[in-house]
Design a protein around this nucleic acid. Structure first.
Lengths: 187, 187
DNA sequence: GAAAATATGGAGATGGTCTCCGTTTGTCAA
DNA sequence: TTGACAAACGGAGACCATCTCCATATTTTC
C-alpha cells in the first residue's frame, strides 16, 4: 500500500507538526472553519510546506482520521469473527454512531470525504465501505438479512448520518436511523 | 407570510429574468458550478442587482424550488387525505425519490438547504419537514407504524439521500433506503 | 566538504464573492 | 406634462481565501 518513500528528516518533522496541530484543531471543532493558510502559520510552517504535504483540506482530514478509520475497520473484522453475522452488522452500525458521537469532527469529515469521493482520495472511506460490504455479505450468506438491498444503501444511510451532523437532535435521530436500517434489513 | 411589498416594475422584471435564467441553469445541472457573478451577466443584469434580489446562492436556489417544494407539500397533504395513513407516508417517500430523480438539481439543493438550516433561510425545507411530520403523526395515530422513532429520523434519511446525490448508483440505493425506512417503520 | 537532491517559506498571482455609490429609471402629486 | 423624490441599477474595485512559484536553506550522499 505505501510506496517506499524515504522522507527527509525535516520533512518528516514538519509533517508531524502539521498532523499534531490538525488533531488539536479537530478536537476544538474548528477544523472546517479555519483558513487553511492560517493553519499553516499555527503549525509553524510556511504555506508552501502545508500544501506540499497535504494538497487539500480533505487530504489533511483523511490523514488525521486514518488511524480512527483503520480502528473502525479492524473493529468490524473483529465483530465479524466473534459474533453471529446478523448481530455483527447491527453491533457495528451502532458502534459507528458511538464513534461519530464521541469524535464529533469525524462525522463531518466522513461526510466530506464521501462527498468528495472523486479520484484517488477518500481511501479511508473506501476501506470503510469494504468493511461494511463484508459484514453485509456475511449476514446475507447466513440468511440473517434480506438480500434485495445492497451495501450502497447502508452506506447512504451512514452518509446521511454524517451529513446531518449539525441537526440539534443528532444523536437520537442517528440512533433512530440505525434502528430503522437494522429492523428493515431483517427478513 | 408575504409582507405587502409594492415592488417596482423594473425590479420585478429583473427578478423574473433572474429566476428564469436560474431555472434554465438548474436544468442544465450547472447551478452549483457557475460563478455567481457570471450568472448575473447571463441573466442580463448587474452583479449588484443579483445580490440585492438574492443575497446568497442558497436564497436563489430556494426561490427557484419554492414552487417544487410547495408542490411536494401539497402532494403530501393530498396523499394524507386520500389514503390510509401508513400507505400515505410510504407513497410520499417513494414519490419524493421520483421527484429527486427527475429534477436532479433538486437533490443537491435540498441537501444544501438542509445543511445551511441556519437563520431564517430554508423556509422550504422547514415546510417539507412539517409535511412529513404530519404524515408520520397520522400514521402513528392510526397504529400503522411504530411510535418510538421521530420525524427527525426520517428527515435524516432523506437528507442522506440528497447528500449522496453523486453516488454512481444513486437511484437504486435511494430506493433501498426508502424500502428500509418503510419496512423498519412497521410495527 | 562539496555537489546533488530535497525541502522550505512567504510574496504574490489567481479567482470568486460581495459592497459601494454615482447614475438611471419609475412613480406620483401637482 | 413635468418636477422631484424614491427605488433600483450596474459594474468597478475592495476583499479574502486558495494555491503556485522560485530563490534560499537544509539534508543526504559520495
Amino acid at each position: 500500500m505505501n510506496a517506499a518513500k524515504p522522507l527527509r528528516a525535516d520533512a518528516l518533522r514538519n509533517r508531524e507538526a502539521l498532523l499534531a496541530k490538525a488533531r488539536e484543531v479537530f478536537d476544538a471543532g474548528e477544523f472546517f472553519d479555519l483558513r487553511f493558510d492560517d493553519f499553516a502559520r499555527l503549525a509553524g510552517v510556511g504555506t508552501g510546506t502545508l500544501y506540499r504535504h497535504f494538497p487539500t483540506r480533505e487530504a489533511l482530514a483523511e490523514a488525521v482520521y486514518h488511524d480512527q478509520v483503520a480502528a473502525l475497520c479492524s473493529r468490524a473484522r473483529h465483530l465479524q469473527a466473534t459474533m453471529p453475522a446478523g448481530e455483527a452488522l447491527a453491533a457495528f452500525l451502532r458502534s459507528m454512531v458511538d464513534y461519530l458521537d464521541t469524535y464529533r469532527g469525524l462525522a463531518r469529515t466522513l461526510a466530506t470525504l464521501m462527498g468528495a469521493a472523486s479520484d484517488t482520495l477518500a481511501e479511508g472511506s473506501r476501506a470503510l465501505e469494504q468493511a461494511v460490504t463484508d459484514l453485509v455479505a456475511a449476514a446475507v450468506q447466513a440468511g440473517a438479512i434480506r438480500d434485495d438491498v445492497g451495501v450502497g444503501t447502508v452506506m447512504m444511510a451512514l452518509h446521511g448520518i454524517g451529513a446531518a451532523h449539525d441537526r440539534p437532535d443528532w444523536r437520537a435521530e442517528a440512533d433512530g436511523v440505525i434502528t430503522l436500517v437494522v429492523d428493515g434489513l431483517r427478513r
